[in-house]
């Protein structure tokens, strides 16, 4: 079976997504959370490209891929700006150390 079916890509993107979620939840460090999120969005983009290739063959799926990539860029910009703002104030990027809000 030389040609690759849809399920190969879907399995790969599902593994990427799982790694992304695990990395985003498992780490205390804000940068690691952003890395996990970029992974999740990339897995979604890969999945969309696979379904657009094997499914409707229309430009719609890949259009969504372009938008997902741009949205990931915008989220990274704001996320990193916030990390720098917090780092300057709290000298660390551990999201969980900044817990003055309680109750």
């Amino acid at each position: 079976m030389t040609s690759v079916g849809l399920h190969h890509f879907v399995l790969l993107s599902a593994v990427l997504f799982s790694l992304g979620i695990a990395c985003a939840i498992a780490r205390r460090n804000a940068v690691a959370i952003l890395v996990g999120i970029e992974l999740m969005l990339n897995a979604a983009a890969l999945n969309l490209a696979a379904f657009s290739r094997f499914g409707a063959l229309r430009a719609e799926g890949q259009l969504f891929v372009l938008f997902v990539i741009v949205l990931a860029a915008a989220e990274a910009v704001v996320g990193l700006a916030l990390i720098l703002a917090i780092h300057r104030r709290l000298r660390s990027v551990d999201v969980h150390r900044a817990d003055s809000l309680k109750g």
């Binding site: 399920h7 879907v10 399995l11 599902a14 593994v15 997504f17 799982s18 790694l19 979620i21 695990a22 990395c23 939840i25 498992a26």
Partner: peptide, 16 residues
């Protein structure tokens, strides 16, 4: 996170 990742993986395997 391990549970969430495993859950996702299981869903993906069911999918495949």
């Amino acid at each position: 996170p391990a549970l969430v990742a495993a859950g996702n993986l299981a869903g993906a395997l069911a999918l495949v």
